[in-house]
């Protein structure tokens, strides 16, 4: 231990200032780390598909061929988030697909309120590990959906299940939650 580092009154001030500086730096770094957790979390979930989020961009058309030896049950669920006065439901509740096979399904939405509203559907896949294998070529969830008062629409979802889907997954549930995003679109 050098002379400077010994805790004597003469160099206390210098040491104190140095330690404080380092600690304040740690505080700011950890504050930043809290925010860094947000992108880190997204990246982590993107790679692993852990939180059941599917990709938000269109997938390429399947080129790996169809695996007819397996049949996957795909179920569709819909729900409307707090306060959006829309009717929103899948037009078929369940279909069977072979991995690699392309399918088109439709969802029905109707604005039952007297006002124009912009809706946004957010998908989630269960089990979470299947999320990265659920490939959407076209999805109404890629864009927001404006509807005038009492207007209705049929919205398309075109998808296939990747042939790489792990063996143990036989049923995939795709859930859409519809949110009212009118206020954030206007601004």
């Amino acid at each position: 231990m050098s002379i400077e580092q010994q805790p004597t009154p003469e160099n206390n001030k210098v040491n104190t200032a140095n330690t404080v500086k380092k600690l304040v730096l740690v505080v700011f770094a950890m504050f930043g780390f809290g925010f860094a957790l947000v992108p880190l979390y997204d990246v982590f979930c993107d790679i692993t598909g852990l939180n059941g989020k599917t990709s938000t961009t269109a997938a390429n058309v399947n080129e790996a061929g169809i695996d007819e030896s397996r049949t996957i049950t795909v179920q569709f669920i819909s729900r409307t988030a707090k306060g959006i006065p829309w009717q929103f439901e899948p037009m078929v509740n369940e279909i069977k697909v072979h991995p690699g096979e392309m399918k088109l399904v439709k969802f029905y939405a109707k604005n039952e309120s007297p006002n124009a509203i912009v809706g946004q559907a957010v998908p989630s896949v269960s089990p979470g590990q299947a999320a990265v294998y659920f490939q959407k070529i076209e999805c109404f969830c890629f864009n927001s959906q404006p509807l005038k008062a009492q207007e209705d629409v049929e919205m398309a979802l075109q998808f296939y299940v990747d042939t790489e889907l792990p063996e143990e997954v036989t049923t995939i549930t795709l859930s859409y939650t519809l949110y009212d995003i009118t206020s954030s679109v206007e601004t």
Partner: peptide, 14 residues
């Protein structure tokens, strides 16, 4: 404390 209180401050800010 100095490692996690800033994270708490961050999450309440979000």
């Amino acid at each position: 404390l100095i490692a996690v209180m800033p994270v708490l401050a961050g999450v309440v800010t979000m």
